[in-house]
Design a binder for these strands. Structure first.
Lengths: 347, 347
DNA sequence: GTGAAAGCGCTAACAA
DNA sequence: TTGTTAGCGCTTTCAC
């Protein structure tokens, strides 16, 4: 059972394929009777014109770029996606979004599909796990297919637009230290995401540059979802010795921070009286929550716009452009979940 | 300045295009020296092989379907998207998501682009505004391009999978009436979305089937975002006569309900003591908010799976399948934002 | 108003 | 190992 082509339609309709083509393209040069007849045959045969072949000639149809997210429900990349879309649209491109669900094979398949399907270039939030697989990226490079990464990937020279996670987390810890905190934890993110690694790095860095001593127990493996924050929060604080309060927690992201706060609320632990909390991302809900979440504000607009800009510039250039590596700074915004500690245990 | 083709590469490299093709496809039959040389030429010319042409022969590359959302940040469709993706993946399809931003022209362009770019079919959350434009849908039908709508569109016979908004909203109002409420408002959604229209319809319907009288003032034009709920909430209740409490509000969606609650909190109006609130959608945050939101739970999983299932069945069928029109029921889940009113003003 | 034929850029036999 | 050639399914002149 092979695919129906324009030839099949032409043959069974008893016309030439040129006429069929004219019907498909809604050209007015074709007789109403003939058109009706051909349309009927098309319907009967369930003929689906192959888009690829149609546009092999003129490439006047619209332009598009792709975005490969890691998870569809990651608020960080969702916010970036919105900004990418805005900028892309402003330059006449439609954005197609797909998600690798943190799976390498998916990332590769999607990239291939974009490249094969007339999508002009792609922005990738790369999957980084133990065995870094970057063959497909090299393949894209060979094809001179324009792409921009949203995180640095070891081993390949490519356009990157990312944020300075190390500095952001480090700043958050320093802020807490400056406010008298001495007992500071990190609820860290999903394994193998470079954001997770970098944020832990920043967390440690702040310790090494302070009078506080770092210890592995200070990093609690958590995740990236609300329920992760909630569950790990309950587990950690259920039998927690309340004499150890006040403490402070830097969370992987806002959603985790919110989940954690929900857990604390349930355990009747007060924020920020007992526990100060800092999130990361600054999603919309963060400022609307009560208490309003102190967090690290990501320059989403800059991040998305810059990535899309580099990509589209590359697409529209007739020669290879120099590779760019842009790292954007975040900044802390303090709201109601952090407080100054007067009598720290050291005093 | 015309596009570089494989011929240009072959010519300047002094080889045949067959050899260039072999390099592009990483075939091992080509001499290392030659490969290096050709790769260099490809880079120099910034040659980007045209995906469409490459796959004109065998169609062994992956399969994909498209989803046209109305807004990227609409939590309703975001949740549906997740389910569509799951099901699509289970059948070997990759999902590409694009957003029309409630613009007709965009919806049309995106649909065209999907059809032209080897995406096998599309699920559409249609833009419905005053002047219903459905030419492009007819065009898709002519091309026998498989598609499924997530809302009914007047004037075209097509596959539809939607939810019963009228019944859901009506049920919510009846629930409130059964719990003694006599003063019930609706914070309605964005103009021209069929969800908005249907929910208002359901709201009115419940009144007409009760002892309460409907009045236009009972419907407050709001929107679909957190800030809409917040702003309209502040505006409505800033100078509200508190003697009129208790009242109840059925909101367009959960995010609006949350925004409204935030406004009430700020105005020191208590939920559910003064105001009972029912949302719509049952997004994850709804149950985690404090107080936990009573809402109308959408069968996201069913909705997404069914839409994707119909689409893919159509794609994989060699003949046209009968058109389906599926309407799914939602159901109320009561949490902490609604209460029974004992002494209503009528008592 | 319709048909015939020459491509679009590439792949894949097969020949050399 | 490389070149030659015949298409892939469609569009688009240009005759008729």
């Amino acid at each position: 059972m092979k695919k129906i082509t324009i030839n099949d339609v032409a043959k069974t309709a008893g016309v030439s394929k040129g006429t069929v083509s004219a019907v498909i393209n809604s050209r007015s040069t074709v007789n109403a009777k003939t058109r009706e007849h051909i349309l009927r045959v098309m319907k009967n045969l369930n003929y689906q014109p192959l888009g690829q072949a149609r546009n092999l000639r003129g490439q006047k149809i619209g332009k598009s770029i792709g975005l490969i997210m890691r998870e569809l429900d990651n608020p960080f990349y969702a916010a970036v996606a919105v900004e990418i879309k805005k900028y892309a649209n402003s330059r006449g491109y439609i954005l197609f979004i797909a998600s690798s669900e943190s799976d390498h094979q998916n990332e590769e398949n999607i990239a291939q599909l974009f490249a094969a399907n007339n999508v002009k270039g792609v922005i990738i939030a790369p999957v980084i796990n133990g065995t870094v697989e970057i063959e497909h990226l090299f393949h894209l490079k060979m094809l001179n297919y324009p792409f921009v990464m949203l995180e640095e990937v070891q081993g390949i020279l490519a356009n990157v637009v990312s944020i300075n996670n190390v500095k952001a987390t480090s700043d958050a810890v320093k802020f807490l230290i400056d406010n008298g905190h001495t007992h500071i934890l990190h609820f860290s993110g999903p394994k193998f995401a470079s954001h997770t690694v970098e944020r832990i790095k920043g967390f440690r860095k702040a310790f090494s540059e302070s009078h506080l001593a770092f210890h592995d127990d200070l990093v609690v493996c958590c995740g990236s979802h609300f329920h992760d924050g909630f569950e790990k929060g309950v587990a950690y604080f259920k039998n927690f010795d309340r004499k150890k309060f006040p403490i402070a927690i830097v969370c992987y992201n806002d959603v985790v921070a919110l989940g954690l706060m929900s857990a604390l609320h349930q355990l009747n632990i007060k924020v920020p009286e007992h526990v100060s909390i800092i999130g990361n991302d600054d999603i919309e809900f963060a400022r609307h929550w009560s208490p309003a979440l102190s967090t690290i504000s990501t320059p989403f607009e800059k991040l998305g716009r810059k990535a899309a800009e580099i990509l589209i510039n590359n697409i529209e250039s007739d020669r290879a452009l120099p590779i760019e590596n842009i790292i954007l700074d975040s900044k802390i915004v303090t709201r109601e979940t952090t407080r100054k500690v007067q009598g720290s245990r050291e005093t």
